[in-house]
Design a protein around this nucleic acid. Sequence first.
DNA 1: ACCTGAACACCGTTCAAGT
DNA 2: ACCTGAACACCGTTCAAGT
Lengths: 187, 187
Amino acid sequence: MNSNAKEEILAAGRRMAQAHGYGGLNFRDLALDVGIKHASIYYHFPTKADLGAAVARRYWEDTAAALDAISADISDPLDCLRLYPDTFRQALKNSNRICLCSFMAAEYDDLPEQVRAEIKTFADVNVAWLSRMLAAGGAVEDKAVDQRARAIFAAIAGAQLIARSRADIAVYDTLIEGYRAAGLLPR
Amino acid sequence: MNSNAKEEILAAGRRMAQAHGYGGLNFRDLALDVGIKHASIYYHFPTKADLGAAVARRYWEDTAAALDAISADISDPLDCLRLYPDTFRQALKNSNRICLCSFMAAEYDDLPEQVRAEIKTFADVNVAWLSRMLAAGGAVEDKAVDQRARAIFAAIAGAQLIARSRADIAVYDTLIEGYRAAGLLPR
DNA sequence: ACCTGAACACCGTTCAAGT
DNA sequence: ACCTGAACACCGTTCAAGT
């Protein structure tokens, strides 16, 4: 267990931050979840800022891997784009959680600089992947690709946020369908 | 001053909640801002839940009034829709704050039921106004009006959230322009 | 190397008591 | 009616001590 502790802290920290944010991430509940004493967490992460940054970094690393897996498995970039909303849907399915970085975006004022840097990278990773799919799919003019990628990312983050506030995943599905109907997302 | 205290608490509470959320709304800083002792706030609002609900209620009441003023002043519903993103832009302009209800949507898990009810009403107020404008504008099929109204509301909330995470209002403007280019918002 | 008990300082929250 | 002092509870952090 001891060699796994760091990984378990990261996993539990991610779950906690996706439900309660950086402010709601606390060493005592985290320790309870992992099954160690709260002081022990400081052995692995010297400060809360370090923990938050590590959790956010692991989060975008996992997201980048998941997106790459999609585009490696599926040859049609438009099919990849059609699957993209599902990556955000999974957080809602997991006890009405949201994207860690959306939550932390709201908490921007209270975030240590190192944490801010990681959530910026999360957005960059998503926009870069969307841009690649859009460019390869050819459904959008070249000069509009970046703008459209950013619009999709922001709109989907918003849909997830609003769906959470109703604790109803059907709200998310309806919003995504609305984006498709409006032409923001490919059919 | 004492008869104004309640109003000043509401105003300061709104500012604080738009920057730090319900979790970051705290009686000590609030009291410092208003100029009374922190325990005094409990005379006006028995619990934090009461304060949060009152702040959120006042927030949607103010928003409803502002939206009604727009649609009363401007006869063309499409012009009203063109102005809608500006209501969310103002929060960002005000020290990179966001919509109180977006922040609280993220905090859903930790919200008292009475606060949840108020942020639900905020969304309802916005969607109802957008639906009226869309229906009157005739730019969207009747049966798609509600879906489009919800999509616009969620997408704009998302744009505001992402712009905050960059502390850059130009990001918001670009995202809104992206929504227009994609056909989600009227040109 | 990895973990723990105990303590500290700070701050949000509460409530009985003041005027 | 309106406000306050003082206590309580919690949390991030530290550190000497355990295995």
